[in-house]
Nucleic acid binder design. Sequence first.
DNA 1: CCGGTGACTGCACCTGGTGCCATCGCTGAT
DNA 2: ATCAGCGATGGCACCAGGTGCAGTCACCGG
Lengths: 195, 195
Amino acid sequence: MGRWEPNAVQRLQQAAWELFAERGYADVTVTEIAERAGLTKRSFFNHFADKREVLFAGAQAFEADILGYLAETDADAEPIDAAVAALTRGGLDLTPYREPARIRRGLIASSTELQERNLIKMASLTAAIAKSLGERQTPARTAAFAAQAAVAAFDAAYDDWAADATADFSALMRQALSDLRHAVDAGPDEEPPRS
Amino acid sequence: MGRWEPNAVQRLQQAAWELFAERGYADVTVTEIAERAGLTKRSFFNHFADKREVLFAGAQAFEADILGYLAETDADAEPIDAAVAALTRGGLDLTPYREPARIRRGLIASSTELQERNLIKMASLTAAIAKSLGERQTPARTAAFAAQAAVAAFDAAYDDWAADATADFSALMRQALSDLRHAVDAGPDEEPPRS
DNA sequence: CCGGTGACTGCACCTGGTGCCATCGCTGAT
DNA sequence: ATCAGCGATGGCACCAGGTGCAGTCACCGG
């Protein structure tokens, strides 16, 4: 029992979430969010760097989780397989949060501001994965492309998962990776068959 | 001879470019840009949606060029090859602008705001390419992944090109695509050899 | 000569975001 | 018990980006 109600950050997130759901991201003001949480605008900005960030609080934790999973993968695996495995585990962790994920996706789609923030978070995740892969024997270029491919597959699978209640995330991820490889593969007449 | 000096947009871009080069993006105010161009803040926002956009005016034209080149590619080519060919031609068009491109890259690297904007422009380009590819016989999924891969290769090649004065863009692009395929390919023991 | 059009301006206003300092209650040390 | 310090919060003034609205003024076409 402190001088203040506990969990200010959580209360702010909750308040923001409710207000965004009610009236959309753009029509909600930071002052309103803070007041619903029983705080002031100034305190909001003591907890979040900006208005967008209140919707992306989970992203940093997610990135950390992925890096943890990545460290657990077989060091001899192909980089892209290691990254895909880690992202698959991370995606499975989200299973209980399908409905919030759907709403969040809707919000992001409604605001270019949020789309930009989402893209930079994905880019940050990609860079972190690439860096981790680079600490294996992998050349930086390969690591970067493998990370980008893995995240692209994850993103597609995540979309599918949000849209289809019955789908299993790891199956979606396998399918996405297979589709990606199909799209990237050279046509049969452009590259000699493997020896 | 109009009532006003001509080429307001160009003057604003020029003024912004100079000021950003002098003092960095963050330390320049829109009012300053407008005044150096002989206009007012209000007029700046009549020409550009926001402060960032003054640095990305070329992006829309570039996207249109790429789509044009894409339409000229062989309709029977693999989607990724068509996209790569179009982006290679677009990259070659930039040859005279290497130095500005370098400066621009430095500016973007210095500001997360600009990084976000850059990412969404690349995403827009990717989506436009994917849409165009989808208008061939290509499935949407394949089109999307092919576009993402092609743009990823372009981005890597563009980086290399900005860093190395002597490099030929189409060679860099071929190399990037080859590296990408190497990074995405399954290891030899994970997939049966082609028949 | 006259009315329309379009680039530009002025102004008031909103909101996100920050710097600075005061407050207040808890905690631990003396 | 008292006091110092810490940390979350609040108040306030302020800045910059961004917008809505109502003008102004030169040009252009009739």
